[in-house]
Amino acid sequence: MPLGYYLALSAVMFVIGIVGVLVRRNALIVFMSLELMFNAANLLFVTFAAYYGTIIGQISVFFVMTVAAAEVAVGLALMVAIFRTKHSIDVDQMSSLKG
C-alpha cells in the first residue's frame, strides 16, 4: 500500500481524537480520545520505520505505549478519586479543583 494511505489514516485518527478532546465533557471519552491520538502517532512512527527500513520508529512506539499506559493508570485513579467526592466525572465540574 502507498505511504499516503497510512498518512491519511493517521491524520483522520488524530483529528477524531482532537475533536473528542475538545467537544466531549466525559473524562473517559477524553482519555479515549487521547489514546486515539497516541495511536495515530504510533501509526506514523511504524509507517516511517517500515518505509525507511529502520527500527527507531518501532522503539519510539514502545516508549509512547509505555507513557500512555502510565497516563491511563494515573488518570483512572484520579477519576475514581474525583468520582468518590463529586459523584460525577464531568469535566466542567472538575474546574472547581483549581483552588
Rank of each mutant, 00 (worst) to 15 (best):
V67E: 03
M32Y: 14
F38K: 00
L9A: 11
V80R: 11
V30F: 10
F63I: 12
G99S: 12
R24E: 06
V21P: 04
Y5D: 07
L76R: 05
V61D: 02
I89K: 13
L78F: 12
N42A: 08
P2A: 00
L22Q: 04
F83T: 04
A73G: 07
F62N: 02
L44V: 06
L3P: 00
F62A: 09
T54M: 14
V19A: 12
L3Q: 05
V80A: 13
H87K: 11
V46W: 04
A81T: 01
F31Q: 03
F38I: 06
D90N: 15
G57W: 14
G20A: 08
V91L: 15
F14E: 08
M37T: 05
G20Y: 04
F63E: 09
G4Q: 00
A50I: 07
M13E: 03
Y52W: 15
L76Y: 12
L22E: 02
S88G: 05
F31G: 01
F83N: 10
L28H: 13
Q93M: 08
F45H: 13
A81C: 05
L34K: 01
Y6E: 01
K86H: 11
A50Y: 12
L36A: 08
G20P: 15
V21R: 05
I59T: 10
N39T: 10
V61R: 02
R84I: 01
A8D: 08
T66M: 07
T54Q: 14
I55T: 14
F14G: 03
L44T: 05
M65L: 10
G4N: 08
F38S: 03
A49V: 03
I82K: 02
G20R: 02
Q58W: 14
K98E: 11
I59Q: 14
T47A: 12
F14H: 14
A8N: 03
L36F: 00
Q58K: 07
F62P: 05
K86A: 05
G57E: 11
V30S: 05
F31E: 00
I56P: 12
L3S: 01
G75H: 07
I29E: 06
A8M: 12
I56R: 11
I16M: 15
M1L: 14
A77N: 02
A69L: 12
V61A: 04
M37E: 02
A11V: 14
K98Q: 09
A81K: 13
R25T: 09
G57R: 10
I29K: 09
V91Q: 09
S95E: 11
F62C: 04
N39K: 07
Y6R: 00
I59R: 08
M1S: 07
V30I: 13
F38A: 03
G20D: 01
L44M: 04
T54E: 15
F63D: 06
S60Q: 14
A81G: 02
I18V: 15
F45M: 10
S96Y: 15
F45S: 08
M79P: 02
I89G: 04
L97S: 10
A69C: 10
I29V: 12
I55W: 14
R84D: 03
G20Q: 06
R84L: 04
T54L: 15
A68Q: 11
M94F: 15
L22F: 06
A49Q: 03
S10N: 01
F83C: 09
V67P: 05
N39G: 04
F83A: 10
Y51G: 09
G53Q: 06
Y52F: 15
A41S: 07
A27Q: 05
L43C: 00
A8V: 13
I82F: 10
A68L: 07
M1C: 03
V67L: 15
L34R: 01
A68N: 09
F45Q: 00
